[in-house]
Amino acid sequence: ASGTLYTYPENFRAFKALIAAQYSGAKVTVDSSFVFGETNKSDAFLKKFPLGKVPAFESTDGKCIFESNAIAWAVANEQLRGKSPMDQAQVVSWMNFADNEILPASCTWVFPCLGIMQFNKGNTERAKEDIKKALAALNSHLLSRTYLVGERISLADITVCCTLLHLYQYVLEPSFRKPYQNANRWFTTLVNQPQVKSVIGEFKLCEKMAQFDN
Amino acid sequence: ASGTLYTYPENFRAFKALIAAQYSGAKVTVDSSFVFGETNKSDAFLKKFPLGKVPAFESTDGKCIFESNAIAWAVANEQLRGKSPMDQAQVVSWMNFADNEILPASCTWVFPCLGIMQFNKGNTERAKEDIKKALAALNSHLLSRTYLVGERISLADITVCCTLLHLYQYVLEPSFRKPYQNANRWFTTLVNQPQVKSVIGEFKLCEKMAQFDN
């Protein structure tokens, strides 16, 4: 599906669809006139996307899709979605793994470092433990695999990778990420793919764990 | 896919897969020897399901799947998943809508009534507002539709319905749910389907909003 994507810049959720489109060849244009906080509160926008959230996608034939995983699915191809129903189920599993096991903990840990949330020591320590568990599961799965599902890149890799961007950029310093060599290998391979690079730019791995920015 | 489902009883997340299997004809057996808190902490279980969470599913040919939406996808059929990639994207969208727009607020509101969590007035009031927004979006979508995606029941209906069970059972009393007639119609139709009834039993709509159980 080709169409228009509404998002603010540097939105890791929007990256999922943009990277999927790079692989599938779908023509996805980011609406350059979109102003977050204004456009998505307008009647015209809310008529198409009642929750007013982004990313939001309108296909060239007028179909409106919200939820970043769904948009990525829509602009993907068969290889990215999974060729068999079981492969698709594994893709859905990893998509949900990213949203349930990584995202809340990632935001809890990283947002205070970006100065957009108060720091809470207990919550941050808990978030670190949750991230360790998630990385351990990922690492173990990637022991003998190059990609999360099947033998080629899929939406599983793209969505999990995008959800890990903030962590690998701001807080997963070398000593912290050392036990997860397979996950590190997989992540580094992905962010250096031309299709990924063309969306997220040059990616710099965290050298020193960011701390709370007051 | 046929196989064994590991879950504790009355788990709305497990209902998704069990209902999907009723429609698709997939043979899904709930492991009756599973003890939550014991079995899912055993080495054998963690080897297959590293995060130790339920529901968890092992297909007859040995594939292990976690995340309830993924299990439902695996045991479903083409009609339930969506016949076209765009329909599938819509299904994924509603699955994520249930997890992102309904579930957090549902837990916040209902769990204190079930004695699962402490009551917090501010959080509960916010949860009620979130649920109103979600129901409004659902209601508006169902103005001229019988099902969420396409012309027949799909995983979109099943997953959103299962995520709404606690709300419609415990807290959405008649006066609260009155503005959402399309959603109420859709929900009532679903819970009275034989395939759904055979999993969740006879469903009783909330008559009086449950309050915090100390």
């Binding site: 349930n100 | 788990n11 992102n100 699962i116």
Partner: peptide
């Protein structure tokens, strides 16, 4: 980016809810 991220709806309390739910059903099971 930070300003937009600040407006994102994240379930920060998810771990608290998950823990409570897990404990409740573990007690019920055993």
């Amino acid at each position: 980016m930070a300003l937009e991220l600040a407006q994102e709806n994240i379930w920060f309390d998810k771990w608290r809810v998950d823990d409570a739910e897990r404990e409740f059903y573990e007690n019920k099971s055993m």
